Simulated scan of single mutants.
Amino acid sequence: MANLIPWQQRLSGGTEDIQDEVIRWYQQTRHGKAYAPDMIWGTLQTEAYASEILRRVVEFLGVPDDVAAGVAKRMERQQVLYDGEHRYEVILGEQALYTNVGGPEVMRGQMERLLRDIELPSLTLGILPTAAEVSVVPMPGFNLYEGGRAHYELVSSGVDITNPEELALHERAFSALFRAAVYGDAASDLISKALAFWSKG
Results as ranks from 00 to 15, higher is better:
92 L>W: 01
28 Q>L: 05
88 Y>K: 04
143 N>R: 05
164 P>K: 05
68 A>E: 15
59 E>S: 11
132 A>L: 06
57 V>R: 06
105 E>M: 02
115 L>I: 01
30 R>G: 15
68 A>I: 15
149 R>H: 11
159 V>H: 00
72 A>L: 13
73 K>P: 11
32 G>F: 07
109 G>S: 05
34 A>M: 01
97 L>P: 03
82 Y>H: 08
120 L>G: 08
72 A>Y: 13
128 L>A: 13
91 I>H: 14
149 R>L: 14
26 Y>V: 12
25 W>N: 08
121 P>T: 10
137 V>R: 05
33 K>G: 02
54 L>M: 07
119 E>R: 09
103 G>I: 00
113 R>M: 07
159 V>T: 05
123 L>P: 07
152 Y>N: 03
119 E>T: 13
76 E>I: 10
160 D>A: 01
72 A>P: 13
68 A>D: 15
83 D>E: 12
71 V>F: 02
119 E>G: 02
135 S>W: 09
58 V>C: 07
100 N>D: 15
111 M>H: 05
124 T>M: 08
42 G>Y: 06
27 Q>R: 15
33 K>P: 04
142 F>P: 08
118 I>K: 06
37 P>Q: 02
93 G>Q: 01
95 Q>K: 12
124 T>W: 12
67 V>C: 08
58 V>Y: 12
132 A>Y: 03
47 E>Q: 10
56 R>P: 05
160 D>N: 06
24 R>F: 12
96 A>K: 00
77 R>L: 08
46 T>R: 00
32 G>M: 10
95 Q>I: 05
138 P>W: 01
